[in-house]
Nucleic acid binder design. Structure first.
Lengths: 143, 143
DNA sequence: CACTTCAAGTTGTACTATACAACCAGAACT
DNA sequence: AGTTCTGGTTGTATAGTACAACTTGAAGTG
């Protein structure tokens, strides 16, 4: 396999993966779509942030984020706190329930990945992870 | 980084990739969604196949495939030929236009990937491609 | 200060991809 | 001939998304 073939293969395989990910994520966790999961994860990681930040970070329209957040709030996984310094801003925080669901889904996803990767030598796992990080890192956007 | 960390990282990065792929694919090629692209690609590779095969291969509902194919036919990228041996079956084939569009989108996707991977040493590309194939191959479905 | 402009979010509307269920038509197997 | 299986379409519903119009608060400018 030369470089060109490798690039084509990477393209094909990443695409193949992406095609399935959302659907299977939905099937695995009907209570938390891939998007919701990602947003909750971001909130946990940042310990709260604004809707606008989520939109910018994930290249989503602000209306999309608004509705996602509304749903998460209805489900009591997220709460909004109006920023006292700027009353336009709502800082989003995980609720206790949100934190729990997130942990639970993360764990079950982790288990699924681990099962799939069970027979890989550690060396390969580490290298694969490194490649993925490197592949994703330049980018805000492109595929 | 140990194996556990690597698994978590792989999970995170694959998910991050999946989250963006469809949207950016759509933006790059408004004329051919990621799904349509994938289906056309499959038709080219197999030199024609049945709608049911597509559904099975991509874990899509047959109604979904039916509508996708209908759209592709409306766009004159695909044509149906009733199987003379079994009148229930329609064998799908790329049209000339379909072949052209597919080639064009493939090329532009390839260029985007290649740009992104431009500064990778060939050795890493080959290994990365290998990992992806290996990761995707067991599966019909997960993660 | 009054006026304009900017930024954060929400709501209305529309579209796409998708699934599930009900159905139809041809084939296969008693 | 009658039942069951298979390939495909259509009806209906849902999720996720974008874009445009609007509201409200903040910031800058005369």
């Amino acid at each position: 396999m030369d470089a060109i073939e490798a690039v084509e293969s990477i393209q094909r395989e990443m695409t193949a993966f992406a095609r399935r990910a959302r659907a299977s994520a939905g099937r695995m966790h009907p209570e938390l779509s891939l998007v919701s999961y990602t947003l909750l994860g971001h909130l946990e990681e940042r310990d709260g942030c604004r809707a606008t930040d989520l939109a910018a970070h994930y290249a989503l329209d602000k209306s999309t984020v608004s509705r996602q957040v509304a749903a998460l709030e209805r489900a009591a996984l997220v709460e909004r706190r109006v920023d006292p310094d700027d009353h336009r801003v709502q800082v989003l925080h995980l609720t206790e329930a949100g934190r729990e669901i997130l942990a639970q889904v993360t764990e079950s996803r982790r288990a699924a990945f681990q099962e799939r990767l069970a027979d890989w030598p550690e060396e390969d796992l580490v290298r694969f992870a490194g490649y993925l990080v490197r592949y994703n890192s330049p980018g805000t956007d492109r595929p």
